[in-house]
């Protein structure tokens, strides 16, 4: 059984399609990253899974339960960290967790939960309205953990956290994953997803443009690592040695610096040994892996190119209004 499975899941608001025929499967026990720019439809997808909004078409199951028909069964087994939530400003952090324990029919200790998410003891009995954004996020994370859920749905969990908080969050996600919990983790910040996720789905304009491991995504897009070598002599005397190698492209030189892109990881060592064999000494070496950022930009651009191609095909319609100011078109 998949932890999350959607079939043709679609949500339209008037003319705007927030989620477009989404086919997504998240396996049990994995940490799945849900990546996309703000406004891509990530939160709407999560809202659909939680029955906060109802689909225009298609369906979703969460832990085998229909997201709409069995919404209550879903919410009993799923821990939710929503996006854009608020706390009850007059209730203490402890009272929030007590409420979660009571409604989930769990036997957790409020202090254990609050300890796990790092909410300091002196803050626990203060009204949550006095909490900083990071503390609210920790409290909501604690509420999500109540009742040991089988699935954690976290919508932009890193927002509002400082680097320390993000590191705590990543530790927590790994702990939960090790304990067998499936984690569904949305973010528009690539490093956060990269650090914890087994697989990543990329959502752009409501459409799933890629689902793969981070390594697999890189390979499929063909983004390699960039090598920057500092040599003992002007680099333009050595570039032909490097350019001759398979799996090496885009060789450029500047003074004693040689830059190239390696599309196969094994080619890196080859670059160095070939240079040494040619009598060139490598003084320094820097390797920069293609960031998910660039990969993500590539995917988005592909999507945009497809959309532009479609728009061109439908272009005759807009010609009816040639007088329109360019600003009005956007």
């Amino acid at each position: 059984m998949a932890a999350i499975e959607t079939a043709g899941l679609t949500k339209r608001y008037g003319d705007v399609t927030a989620v477009d025929a989404l086919e997504l499967t998240v396996e049990e026990g994995e940490v799945f990253g849900f990546l996309g720019p703000n406004g891509a439809g990530k939160s709407t997808t999560i809202d659909l899974l939680l029955d906060f909004v109802r689909p225009t078409a298609g369906s979703a199951t969460v832990l085998g339960y229909d997201a709409q028909a069995d919404a209550q069964a879903v919410s009993r087994r799923v821990g939710v960290l929503p996006e854009g939530f608020d706390v009850y400003p007059r209730l203490t952090g402890r009272r929030h967790v007590e409420f979660a324990i009571e409604t989930t029919d769990a036997d957790d200790e409020p202090d254990e939960i609050l300890e796990r998410v790092g909410l300091e003891p002196d803050a626990r009995d203060r009204p949550a309205g006095e909490y900083s954004t990071g503390m609210r996020q920790r409290l909501a994370t604690g509420i999500a953990l109540v009742g040991d859920p089988d699935l954690l749905l976290m919508d932009e969990p890193a927002s509002g956290l400082d680097p320390h908080g993000i590191s705590d969050l990543q530790t927590l996600v790994r702990e939960e994953a090790d304990a067998g919990t499936t984690v569904f983790f949305s973010s528009h910040i690539l490093e956060h997803v990269e650090a914890v996720c087994d697989r990543v789905g990329v959502l752009v304009d409501g459409r799933l443009v890629a689902v793969d491991t981070i390594a697999g995504l890189r390979a499929s897009v063909g983004a390699g690592a960039t090598m920057e070598l500092t040599l003992d002599r002007p680099a333009d005397r050595a570039d032909d040695v490097v350019a001759a190698l398979d799996d090496v492209t885009d060789v450029t030189t500047s003074g004693r610096t040689l830059e190239c892109v390696v599309t196969d990881p094994r080619a890196k060592a080859l670059v160095v040994t070939q240079l040494e064999d040619a009598g060139v000494t490598v003084r320094d070496l820097r390797v920069e892996d293609a960031s998910l950022e660039s990969l993500y930009t590539t995917l988005t651009d592909e999507q945009a190119a497809d959309a532009a191609a479609e728009a061109l095909e439908d272009g005759s319609g807009s010609d009816a209004n040639p007088e329109r100011e360019p600003e009005a078109v956007g």
Partner: peptide, 14 residues
């Protein structure tokens, strides 16, 4: 409006 309903409905209450 505040968004606390998401916290509330994310829990078992219907």
């Amino acid at each position: 409006r505040s968004g606390s309903i998401k916290l509330l409905l994310g829990l078992p209450p219907t």
